[in-house]
């Protein structure tokens, strides 16, 4: 790296004062820094306690820092220097460079064609280099819309116990999963709530999918994919809002009585409902896949 300045620099020395005190301070700091560094090494082997290690290493570095700053400020000669700046444009006329570049064209008759051909082959090679990137991921296809739910799958809780209609209380929220399927999949988890059937404001079809007012929705927010993990249930309805499922990430709020329709927040779609029925043991059983696509929206998702 070169300095752009050719001009002479003027310097001004500071009178040398008494440096003895500063030198002592630096020596002391350096000695203490050495000790702290040794202490760190010993601690790692003998007693690797995070706090002590941090104190030893941080302390050693702090003492080194103090030593360096004191040395820089009090011991070595102090000066302020002044240097002229160079004007780059004046020093090396840009036109000369342009001429040198242009030199290459001398005696070339089909310059445009050659440059164009070089550009085209460069672009083609660049594009060819990008094509393998396609292999990084599979085609989107149908996998993104698939879920493990199908007719007859029982709903189980996180301990794999079947959930019955009596487990679901008004005002509480349960998480459910498809029996015997992986839970690490977007399509797996559902949230189950209960609304007294008289309070439901939903179509007859949705009502048929909610036996005794037990509603199940995909737990994955259709906005950005967080788990809809908050159930806002009013303690005293006249002064508070209606019961709703809320995503804690971006506060999309889904009205439970209206079957998970968006009430507030950024989501573009309602929560997809999972159709349920009760079997003889009053356990919750899916009667099919979600009504609507689960997971965050992308181009082509239907509302």
């Amino acid at each position: 790296m070169s300095s752009p300045t050719e001009g002479a620099s003027e310097t001004h020395d500071r009178e040398a004062g008494s440096k003895r005190g500063a030198e002592n301070l630096v020596l002391l700091s350096l000695a203490a820094a050495t000790l702290a560094a040794v202490a760190f090494g010993v601690l790692v082997i003998v007693l690797p306690d995070t706090q002590l290690l941090g104190l030893a290493l941080g302390g050693s570095l702090a003492l080194l820092g103090v030593a360096a700053v004191v040395a820089g400020q009090k011991i070595v000669p102090q000066e302020i220097a002044i240097e002229e700046r160079t004007d780059f444009g004046e020093r090396q006329p840009a036109s000369e460079v342009v001429e040198m570049v242009r030199d290459a064209e001398r005696g070339v008759s089909r310059r445009r064609l050659l440059v164009g051909a070089a550009g085209a082959s460069g672009a083609a090679l660049g594009a060819a280099a990008l094509v393998p990137a396609v292999a990084l991921g599979p085609k989107v296809g149908e996998t993104i819309a698939q879920t493990p739910w199908s007719r007859g799958r029982r709903v189980v809780d996180s301990q794999d116990r079947p959930i019955t209609a009596d487990d679901v209380q008004v005002g509480a929220m349960l998480s459910g999963f498809p029996e015997g399927a992986s839970r690490r999949e977007f399509g797996a988890s559902i949230v189950i709530v209960k609304v007294p059937p008289g309070e439901l404001e939903i179509s007859a079809r949705m009502r048929a999918d909610a036996p005794e007012g037990v509603l199940a929705f995909s737990k994955i927010c259709p906005h950005a994919g967080c788990a809809v993990a908050i159930y806002r249930h009013p303690l005293y309805e006249p002064t508070t809002e209606r019961p709703a499922l809320v995503c804690p990430c971006h506060y999309s709020t889904f009205d439970v009585r209206r079957g998970g329709t968006l009430e507030f927040g950024p989501a573009g779609r309602d929560l997809p409902q999972l159709p349920l029925e009760l079997n003889a043991a009053r356990e919750l059983v899916a009667t099919g896949d979600f009504v609507g696509q689960i997971g965050p929206s992308y181009l082509g998702v239907r509302k």
Partner: peptide, 8 residues
């Protein structure tokens, strides 16, 4: 009912 540009 087709989503073109989602909210996120």
């Amino acid at each position: 009912d087709l989503t073109l540009v989602p909210n996120a």
